[in-house]
Simulated assay, not measured.
Amino acid sequence: MDPKATLFLMGHSAGVGDVLRVTAALKAFKMAYPESEIHLVLLTKDKGYVSEELMSKHCLLNSFHSIDKRIRSLKDWKRFFNDFEVVVEKVRPDLIVDLEPHGLKSSFLCMYARLKYGIKTVGIAEFPLRGLFYTVRAEPTRKVLKSVDYTDRFFVALKPLGIERKGTPIELCETPEGKAFRESFRRLYNIPNKPLLGLNIGCGTPDALWRRPSLKLLRQVVRTLQSKMDAYLVLTGASFEKDINQAFLQDYDLPALDMAGKTSISELTGLIKSFSLFISTDSGPYHMAVALRVPTLAIFVKDFPQSYHHHPWVRCVVLDSEEKIDKAVRAGLELLLPLSFQEASL
């Protein structure tokens, strides 16, 4: 098999972190089939979400498409298949890989493409009869997955193709808009010529608020690292997260700038790329920084290995008490060492 154009289907959350997780699988596939174009379809209930802008400019993709998967009537089913057919006619894939283990909507699309266009399909036989929708069937996730790392789930469908993760990280490239923003950022905001320390408190949606650490504890970690780095602090975030940033900055006596709501998702790639160290909670910018290979200190409120990334430029720490402050600071300082020293310490 030597596909010229491969169409991947994913249908989970449209969140930035969730969508970026798939890029490790796309990268591994590209390394196995370097001549194949890579196209991605996101089946989503949240069309227009900010992650679509990010993925539409992703350096691994030849094209990105989103299809509304909300089905309430026969009319919606017709629209669903028509939207998919438009993508297939445009991309003309000779291979479709369904990365999702659950549900049947992506399975129906694979069967449709297989019967109408004769396209070879790969999918996961997660439960009885689901494998019948595909030309090539992967074993169920319960038999294949050996870790709780969320990124690994996207490799289950690739196993029949002989593709394994082998530590492949998620990937993101700085966009042209990001590069332009990074190159003008200091001048536009009159930032001194010091190292930049980034902070993303984030987690501003109702379902994510529990992921925010104590501002008191976080403030001590950030202030200590900023002092040791002699850095300028820049806070990121969406416009609705400005309040939490301002709460953090109350009585904060070191130089800082709140950039919440002042960048697009594309410009944010450049802002993150400018940081010597990025501190973030478990949110979209955390995964962006990891994918951009920026030294990243991820702060969690409890042990949550599903969201951890295990690479030399990443440290994941739990910050739930004052006793954990020193450990978080040490982890941040480790990331400021040359990469060779970081790898030696792992």
Rank of each mutant, 00 (worst) to 15 (best):
D68A: 09
C173W: 07
R219N: 09
L104E: 09
L54D: 02
L249I: 11
T175L: 05
E334A: 13
G261D: 02
A328G: 10
V16C: 02
G332R: 12
K327T: 13
S266W: 06
L99V: 05
F154Y: 15
Y189W: 14
V22F: 13
H102E: 04
V88L: 12
P34Y: 11
P295K: 12
S147A: 07
F155D: 01
S321M: 06
L197I: 06
L20S: 06
P206S: 12
L337W: 10
F80T: 07
Y232D: 03
S214Y: 04
Q306D: 03
S274K: 04
E323Q: 05
K143L: 10
K159S: 07
H311N: 11
L42Y: 07
R79E: 12
P101C: 12
L254Y: 08
F304S: 15
Y117P: 04
V222L: 03
V234M: 14
I299E: 03
F108M: 13
K45L: 10
G131H: 02
L197E: 13
D149L: 14
K216H: 03
E35K: 15
K166Y: 06
S276D: 14
K4Q: 15
S56D: 05
T151L: 08
L109D: 06
V222H: 00
E174D: 01
R72M: 06
F341W: 10
V91L: 05
E334F: 06
S107L: 01
Y49P: 00
H102N: 09
E53P: 00
D2Y: 10
G167M: 12
M31G: 05
L42K: 08
D258Y: 02
D152A: 11
G202Q: 08
D18V: 01
S264N: 10
D152F: 04
L297S: 05
L199T: 10
G15W: 09
P195K: 13
Y286E: 12
A24S: 15
I170R: 05
N200P: 01
E343D: 05
L74K: 07
F304L: 14
K166A: 11
L271I: 14
V86Y: 08
L217R: 03
F155E: 08
E334Y: 12
V97T: 00
F81L: 15
P305Y: 09
W77C: 09
K57S: 10
K57T: 13
L337M: 12
L337C: 10
L61D: 01
